[in-house]
Amino acid sequence: MRLVTALLVGLIFGLGISVSGMANPAKVLNFFDLAGTWDPSLAFVMAGALAVAIPGYRLVLARPAPAFEDRFQLPDTRVIDRRLILGSATFGIGWGIAGFCPGGALPAIGTGDPAVFLFLAALIGGLLGARVLQARAPARKPA
């Protein structure tokens, strides 16, 4: 049952990405190209998602626990440190180069487009590379 609901949730997300156009790097990159072929669609995707998720989370998180688990797993870190800022800034650079982000690329697997697999292979390389670096350098104090 848990796996079936997870599959369906994934499907809704994947369908959302497909319908929104966010699996398409050309469209994503055009959102960032204010001075050129600007396409504001991505802002509408974010607006639609937040319009549902803000009230939806408020309702759900007011409950004592999720349906299939004992508790909600929410991030407990609150610090805004160099790691968060530089990491996110780095992500934006890569996003601006490739036009894919992880959430757009995972559903895009279903299209079978070779570029998606190239992106995901590089993405996994980056994730594992960062994991190795992080294991070597013990967590420093927040900036």
Partner: peptide
Amino acid sequence: PIIDLPISNLAVAVGGLIVGVGVSYGGGC
């Protein structure tokens, strides 16, 4: 769904690598 790439495969690979490092440190995307 349409996937159009206005960029080279090299850009896809380099971008992917940078995204992977960035989201690891940034803790999300």
